[in-house]
């Protein structure tokens, strides 16, 4: 009995020493070495791919933002600022509940099921809004034109991209709101559209923040 307790103790002591040595290798040296190389070779990317416009940081090219009007008095959900291209719905984004000294973005999805009544309603509302917002005199959006990404929330809630179809659909509205011609804005969207990597990896997409920065520059030029 005493012997087996002693043996178990010795074994656990060996286990602890193994853990501490491997913690030093994989939990201290490894992350620090990777950080050193990353900061030296890929400084901007390692720090979040920040993007600048007019000399100040306006976000990360990887993190989706919302383009809303300021909240009016008594309003709870902000309205989209239709002057700018809009991203995907963000119904899965959460608010920071544990460590409330910060206003951290809490990434996430809605996790609503394909047969959820709540999700059906979200999709219906989003479709109605997309049709209403993007129909301008001389250009009426049909329901069949609204792509799936325009009415669904992404996995992270931070999707920086929209499909080229959703960007195209917003061209008439954005042109009208900014006093630009449809052709000018369409050209801008085409320039900002990224194809599949190597022609087959991933899906074609448009980065909304980069598109809006380019739009702002174009609108300023007149």
């Amino acid at each position: 009995m005493n012997n087996s307790v002693l043996n178990t103790g010795r074994l656990l002591w060996a286990g602890l020493r193994a853990l501490l040595v491997l913690t030093l290798v994989t939990g201290v040296i490894y992350p620090l070495a990777v950080t050193g190389v990353a900061q030296a070779l890929f400084h901007d990317k390692a720090n979040g791919s920040e993007i600048r416009a007019d000399g100040k940081v306006v976000g990360s090219s990887l993190i989706g933002q919302s383009y809303n009007l300021p909240l009016k008095k008594g309003q709870e959900t902000p309205e989209p600022d239709l002057k700018w291209f809009q991203g995907r719905p963000q119904n899965g984004l959460g608010t920071n509940s544990v460590n409330t000294q910060y206003k951290l973005i809490l990434s996430g999805a809605t996790n609503l099921s394909a047969d959820s009544k709540v999700l059906v309603q979200q999709v219906k509302d989003a479709q109605a809004a997309v049709i209403k917002d993007n129909s301008v005199p001389g250009y009426t959006v049909k329901r069949s034109q609204v792509p799936a990404d325009a009415v669904t929330s992404s996995g992270s809630g931070l999707d920086p991209d929209i499909s080229p179809a959703y960007a195209d659909l917003q061209v008439h509205r954005v042109a009208a709101r900014n006093g630009l011609s449809v052709a000018q804005v369409q050209k801008l969207v085409d320039e900002q559209t990224k194809g599949r990597t190597l022609g087959f990896v991933g899906e074609p997409r448009v980065n909304v923040l980069e598109l809006n920065i380019a739009l702002k520059a174009l609108a300023a030029k007149g």
Binding site: G92, N111, D115, V120, V123, Q127, A148, S154, S156
Partner: peptide, 22 residues
Amino acid sequence: GPALHLAGGAMEGKEVRFGVGS
């Protein structure tokens, strides 16, 4: 599934850059 059918694609919870296939 009703919601995905209505939306016209299974993009709920998926990122545009990956799409359905990936």
